[in-house]
Design a protein around this nucleic acid. Structure first.
Lengths: 153, 153
DNA sequence: TATTGTTATACTCTATAACTATA
DNA sequence: TATAGTTATAGAGTATAACAATA
């Protein structure tokens, strides 16, 4: 009898990989976020950037990029878009003419407040099958993974 | 005294959003996966497709696309790449000439086995700060979220 | 020399719509 | 009519490498 490669669980099945499951669930959240805010709504990355700009007024672009975990160069288009929508402004910083501080406009603050409510509903909807403990555990574990990685480098 | 928009926690802070944390952790896993398999290594999506093809021999392209949660059209390039690398073959299915079954080659099975070991190490490395319970809870919750979404539609 | 913001460019992954050949 | 595979195209998001202005 010839030996064939066994169909047994020599290897982790795809479904048991955290990375794969993260990807699948991330895609679900991402798509639902867009559906929730609609065709003309803010993209996830613009919402994230606006959120940090509102909650950390006068943050610089470099700081914001680091906070979001993306490159400075990638942030330019995001800030361009938010500024184009009149949601925030680039303002010069006295003392260092290289820096642009990001200041949310009143319109930006108002829109952020409105959108945030819908974002909460979107999360609530997707998480509705989880118990309170499961939700807390999920956030906690995701933050722990982020922190461990950031401390590594 | 004028009322200003309070900096208090009226809204969920960005860091407390599951969607945002999912994105950040997904990016970490994705980048580390690529670093682990190297410049010439399989991409995450090709590894996923090969994994399912190996563990579900003669799966059709449509079935595989559905299993991966992507469009049939998107799978074409993935199968092209895997076939180009000699890791699997499109084989005709008797009885329905529309269908292509995907059959991993011996080389594909061997490479999958080798790579899977490295993928396990990559996951182990990233998850090393989590307890066994936390890991189990994470997979379980991610699967639960996927399942709930898939049952919804 | 180093940093901030910027541009140009390329890469990965995905979706939508239309086509063809089969059924 | 419906399905499997395919193509063409576009869109979102990211990174890398270079640059000018400023420190």
């Amino acid at each position: 009898m010839n030996t064939v490669i066994s169909s047994d669980s020599e290897f982790a099945t795809l479904d048991s990989l955290i990375g794969y499951n993260l990807k699948r669930v991330y895609m679900i959240f991402q798509a639902d976020f867009r559906r929730t805010l609609g065709k003309e709504g803010l993209s996830p990355r613009c919402y994230s950037a606006l959120s940090l700009a509102v909650q950390h007024t006068d943050i610089t672009q470099s700081e914001l990029a680091r906070e979001l975990g993306i490159e400075r160069s990638g942030l330019v288009a995001i800030v361009d878009e938010l500024e184009g929508l009149g949601l925030l402004s680039r303002v010069p910083v006295p003392g260092d003419r290289r820096v642009q501080a990001l200041s949310p406009t009143r319109k930006g603050q108002k829109l952020f407040a409105e959108i945030s409510r819908r974002v909460s509903q979107h999360e609530e909807r997707l998480l509705s099958t989880l118990s309170v403990e499961e939700r807390k555990g999920l956030v906690s574990v995701l933050k722990k993974l982020r922190k461990a990685y950031e401390e590594r480098e």
